[in-house]
Amino acid sequence: MTHKKQFDSPPRRVALFVTCMVDMLYPEVGMATVELLERHGVEVVFPAEQTCCGQPAFNSGFWEEARPLARRFVDIFEPLVRQKQVDAVVAPSGSCTTMTSHFYQLLLENEPAYRERAAFLGAATFELTEFLVDVLGVTDVGARFDGRLTYHACCHLLRELGIDRQPRALLDAVEGADLVAMTGADECCGFGGLFAIKNGGISTAMGQRKAQNIAKSDADAVALCDVSCMTHINGLLSREGQRCRAVHIAQVLTNQVDVAARPASDEVAPESKAAPRRWQDDKVKG
């Protein structure tokens, strides 16, 4: 697809494409992303005009409704890169990166000017782990996690962007983490945007399969790179009363994983309340 931008010298400044879900639901993931970037000497700017990339509309066939959002996104981010105010755009999401760097090419097919600008922007847009590992050359960010950790490969990240080695390398370097394998780690969790609503029954069945595999892995946490899938997986884990939770990789890498502070952790089935709460035993508080 797009050929990624090559850097002659290490990038100094990036624009954060925080994504609307992180902005509204998981600001801590956004903060963790900023922390990781700054810790490695990269200045972060946040274009406050950004809203949503339009994927929910695009994904469900409403391309007419998605186009203004795509053009808007290009108008906000592309000049920053074009005018060299930033070296790159970074997003803590494989799916939103896919939308802006791949699917805009399809969506803006009949608008050559925007399409070209979107392609230029797409080449300079990186998913967080890709940026850390491939661009900054970092795998050990000095994180620590005492417990069993597994990884769920989100679909767009894995199969549209081809990113898999990068997040795994970052997790490999987390001190104290006991990395455990999960059956079907690269199988869809059943989120799929509006699919989760329009085909709620199938989506739930897929999610339950994922939740079973997570339970079988006996992990304390499932790291992943998209908060959308995280929301879906946690929605099922919480409803089923499982102790394990899905967490964004940026949270793991900044030692933020502290489920006791999360509202979701209050929602454990009564019978498991007596059992040791692995999340509360977490010794890695930042």
Binding site: V18, V22, D23, M24, L25, Y26, P27, G30, M31, F46, A48, A196, I197, K198, G200, T204, G207, T231, H232, N234, G235, L236, S238, R239, P263, A264, E267
Partner: peptide
Amino acid sequence: AWTSSRDFPPLAKRSFREQ
């Protein structure tokens, strides 16, 4: 169709942009 089988988190009290 979501909440019949899955929980959903509330929106953050303070969004990223506010923070």
